[in-house]
Simulated scan of single mutants.
Amino acid sequence: MAEALVTLELRGRVAWIGLNRPAKRNAINDALLAALDAAVGEAQGQARAMVVFGHGPCFCAGLDLSEHGARSAEAVFHHSRSWHAVFRRIRSGRIPAIAAIHGACVGGGLELASACHIRVADPSAIFALPEGTRGIFVGGGASVHLARILGAARMTDMMLTGRALDAAAAERAGLVTYLTEPGGAVDQAGVLAAKVAQMAPLTVLGVLQALPRIQDMAEEDGLFVESMMAALAQTGPEAQAGLAAFLEKRAAKAGES
């Protein structure tokens, strides 16, 4: 029996989703994309946070080019849109996603990592967009979402010159949220996911759904939505319990774990 292309394990409130084509450096083909979509959907119905990682030598080496060459322009267009749909399910779904990155995180793998809300990397991580040097263009959402993280100028450099960022450079650029010791990305992602899974659902809803939209709004519209979200979250039962714990000195202070 063939091994699953994507593994899914529930540990308490956290879903662990692993890309599982290690012999192909977890390159994303159509079957893996479909398996990832199914795993993400299951995780969002059962967990409060998810960790996305790669089995084997790296996180993800991107698009499986062996399936790409024979496609027509129309087929490539619809294939790109299918990637957008799966990554949108991660980015705009019900629960936060944390990418645990080691080794290659390039092309479509970087687009997958960019769809996650937090990115944790160890020093082995390498980030690149090799599409330009191969005569193709990004198709998994990088031109919108990765460009917002890195800035269009840095993404332009990476695509035109093939420049790769090591983990330290990616952290300086704001792409990597946490940089760990060697081999520590998965453990750190687990710690963060367990913490995130305890967040009040209304707060999570605001962070995942309102915050990205506010970035695209005019200032006054954004501030209006912020106030509406604050009113919704701060009158919820979790907020009332959290405020009471703080006032009664039962809660950790800011910066404490």
Rank of each mutant, 00 (worst) to 15 (best):
A113I: 07
S114G: 06
S114R: 10
A115V: 04
A115Q: 04
A115C: 06
A115M: 04
H117V: 12
I118Q: 05
I118H: 07
V120H: 03
A121W: 00
A121D: 00
D122S: 04
S124V: 07
A125H: 01
I126W: 00
F127R: 00
L129F: 01
L129H: 00
G132A: 12
T133N: 08
T133I: 12
G135N: 05
G135P: 04
I136R: 12
I136T: 15
V138L: 12
G140M: 03
G140R: 02
A142K: 08
V144W: 06
H145P: 01
L146N: 04
L146A: 09
L146G: 05
A147M: 12
A147Q: 10
A147K: 13
I149K: 12
L150G: 07
G151S: 03
G151W: 00
A152Y: 04
A152V: 11
R154E: 11
T156H: 07
D157L: 13
M158K: 08
M159Q: 10
M159P: 01
L160G: 02
L160M: 14
L160D: 06
G162K: 02
L165K: 04
L165R: 02
L165G: 01
L165N: 05
A169S: 11
A170M: 05
A170E: 06
A170Y: 09
E171R: 15
E171V: 10
E171Q: 15
R172D: 13
A173G: 15
G174W: 02
T177F: 05
T177Y: 01
L179W: 00
G183E: 10
D187T: 08
D187N: 11
Q188I: 09
A189Y: 03
G190E: 11
V191C: 06
V191G: 05
A194Q: 07
A194K: 12
K195Q: 13
Q198A: 08
M199S: 05
P201R: 14
L202R: 08
T203W: 04
V204H: 04
V204S: 07
G206S: 15
V207S: 02
Q209L: 11
Q209N: 09
A210D: 14
A210V: 13
L211W: 11
I214Q: 10
M217N: 10
M217D: 01
M217I: 10
A218Y: 13
E219L: 15
D221S: 15
G222A: 11
F224H: 14
V225F: 08
E226S: 14
S227Y: 14
S227A: 14
M228F: 15
M228P: 00
M229Q: 12
A230R: 14
A230Q: 15
L232Q: 13
L232V: 14
A233I: 15
Q234N: 15
T235D: 14
T235K: 03
T235N: 15
T235P: 02
G236L: 07
P237A: 12
E238I: 03
E238R: 09
A239G: 02
Q240V: 12
Q240A: 10
A241D: 13
A241W: 08
G242V: 03
G242I: 01
G242F: 00
L243A: 11
L243M: 13
L243S: 04
L243Y: 15
A244E: 13
